[in-house]
Simulated scan of single mutants.
Amino acid sequence: MDFDDRPARSASAADWASSATDRAASVAARAPDPTTLARVGLGAMVFAAGVHKLLDPLSWSAYVVPWLAPLLVVSPVTFMLANGVLEVGFGAAILADRYTALASAVAAVSLSATCLYLAVVFVAEGGLFGDVLARDIGLAGLAWAVSVDSLRRPTRTP
């Protein structure tokens, strides 16, 4: 078989790629708005974390290192219970898309402060909570994105 007699594969590959791109664009056109997905994801995470803090505050109190505990005005368990109540409320507000700017800003500030705390613990305690720090950096970024988006949206009238 001569080089010129081979079937042209690039045309079929190009057709396949074009078809795949068209199918992906069709699916994307029907998908929810990315900012809605981000808001719902953040709201669900904050809500779920709050519920879990209410159900098992002892496991969450493990994130309070010994040198921090005396600085809290309440016990670590009580601190987690109070946070759980607040997180359920703010998470529900974000999910319902009500007071989203305020609720997501609170989540963003809280997660950013948590990241700073975890970074200090990571350095001071030889790498402790590094996995949680890595995760919370992304969640803080998500919360800031939802907060900024909610501030840019026009105000809805009832």
Rank of each mutant, 00 (worst) to 15 (best):
A24G: 09
A24W: 06
Y99P: 00
V88W: 05
A140C: 15
V106W: 15
H52L: 11
D5I: 04
D22Y: 01
A103L: 07
A11T: 11
R98K: 01
R98L: 08
E125R: 05
A124C: 06
T114Y: 14
A105L: 15
K53D: 10
C115Q: 06
V73W: 14
V74K: 05
L86P: 02
A103S: 09
T157H: 12
Y117M: 07
A29G: 13
D15H: 07
S112N: 06
R135S: 10
L54V: 05
S10I: 06
A14E: 04
A119I: 00
F79K: 01
H52E: 13
V77L: 10
G138H: 15
G141N: 14
A24T: 15
T78A: 09
A92G: 09
S104G: 09
D15P: 00
V65P: 05
E87N: 03
P34Y: 15
T78M: 00
L71M: 14
G89Q: 07
V109T: 12
S12W: 05
R156C: 08
A124I: 00
I137S: 05
S104C: 10
L58S: 13
A119L: 07
S112H: 09
T155C: 01
A25E: 11
P66V: 01
G138V: 13
V88N: 00
F79W: 03
D136K: 09
A82T: 07
A49N: 11
L55T: 08
L68W: 08
A145N: 06
A143Q: 11
L151D: 13
A124T: 00
A103H: 11
L133K: 05
E87L: 12
S75E: 04
P154Q: 09
L72P: 03
T35W: 15
L133E: 09
V73D: 07
T100M: 11
L102N: 05
L118V: 05
F90K: 00
F47C: 03
G41N: 10
T114K: 08
V40R: 03
V51K: 13
V85Y: 06
A143V: 10
V77I: 14
E87C: 04
V40E: 14
M1Q: 06
G126V: 02
L151C: 13
L72H: 03
S61D: 03
F79Y: 12
S12N: 00
P66Q: 04
D2H: 13
L37N: 12
F129D: 04
A82N: 11
L116C: 07
T36Q: 14
Y117H: 03
D56M: 11
G41Q: 08
A69G: 02
A62P: 05
W16F: 06
V51C: 13
A108N: 12
D5R: 07
D5G: 01
T36E: 12
I137T: 09
S147C: 13
R9A: 01
R156P: 03
V88E: 01
A69P: 09
L151F: 15
P57I: 07
A17K: 00
G89V: 13
R23M: 11
